[in-house]
């Protein structure tokens, strides 16, 4: 027994060591650093709550960045989930070349986080890019996608939504696990497709919606590549998400202590929203065998 336990631990050790060294140590170190003045080149100096006080009382950029981040998350996540569910619903039908379509729709999420796609996005939405060329066919004047502060955030949001593949695959798996007899019974009772979708499909996939909601929300709060490559957070900080601000403070302004404090505020916000989601899930997520259903 002792030998097999040791063997088990040995097998687990690469993961545990990796978790401790690359996750837990930096995680706790950043908490400590958030209470210091640390310029990376000299030893950190303990400053207590100074970083947090400055963050909440003086820092206009933080307030702006936080607002942009919240708008980004609250627009992106529902849009992406809605779109992923919509496509998954279509792909759940038995169509010709369905596997080809499923693959094609999943590809963007494999490519989506890459720098190359962010660069491609930049060209697609440039003044003389594909989107404006397409709109010009209908007599629409070229739109300044990246130069207008409102459009810029929308354009970055679209990039995230385009990467709906992973959420779509999970939705598709959930849709395929729904018992077809439920739809047949509903159809016999005269239910329309919309009724079936709202009263059968949605309730039965709420656990998957909940899972995707949490995952997408956490990922959206951490978005970095798109705005960094495409707009560098501009114009007028309209796409200056908190991860960009953290990055700039740490590696361009050499204020790792302050950057750590922002990172911890971001962590707490994600934690609170996740807890709210878990709390609310009791009211709208239905699991198999749940007595409410």
């Amino acid at each position: 027994m002792t030998r097999s336990r040791g063997l088990g631990l040995a097998y687990l050790s690469p993961y545990i060591i990796g978790l401790m060294v690359f996750t837990m140590v930096p995680f706790l170190a950043s908490l400590w650093l958030s209470f210091t003045d640390y310029d990376l080149m000299s030893a950190p100096v303990w400053t207590g709550l100074d970083n947090y006080i400055e963050l909440f009382t003086e820092d206009r950029t933080f307030r702006r960045s936080l607002w942009v981040t919240l708008v980004y998350v609250f627009v992106t996540v529902p849009l992406k989930l809605g779109f992923a569910l919509f496509i998954a619903y279509i792909l759940n039908y038995k169509l010709r070349f369905i596997n080809l379509f499923r693959t094609a729709f999943y590809v963007p999420s494999i490519l989506g986080g890459s720098i190359a796609i962010a660069v491609l996005w930049r060209y697609i939405f440039a003044t003389e890019g594909l989107v404006n060329m397409f709109l010009a066919q209908f007599g629409v004047e070229p739109i300044n996608w990246f130069g207008d502060p409102t459009n810029a955030l929308f354009t970055i949001t679209l990039l995230r939504c385009w990467q709906f593949g992973s959420a779509m695959v999970i939705f598709l798996a959930a849709l395929q696990s729904i018992d077809k007899s439920l739809y047949e019974a509903a159809a016999i009772d005269g239910a329309s497709k919309l009724h079936s979708f709202v009263f059968i499909t949605i309730p039965l996939i709420t656990p998957v919606i909940f899972f995707n909601l949490i995952m997408q929300m956490v990922q959206a709060f951490q978005e970095f590549n798109g705005p960094y490559i495409i707009t560098q957070g501009g114009p007028l900080k309209s796409t200056y998400l908190l991860p960009l601000y953290i990055y700039d403070e740490a590696f361009r302004r050499f204020d790792m202590g302050y950057a750590s404090a922002i990172a911890w505020v971001l962590f707490v916000i994600i934690m609170i929203l996740t807890l709210v989601a878990f709390w609310s899930s009791k009211k709208w997520v239905f699991y198999a065998g749940d007595k409410r259903s």
Partner: peptide, 16 residues
């Protein structure tokens, strides 16, 4: 700057 930003974050020597 608004029109420049329309191209995204592109270096001068990369512009057509």
């Amino acid at each position: 700057m608004e029109d420049e930003a329309a191209e995204g974050n592109v270096n001068l020597y990369e512009k057509q």
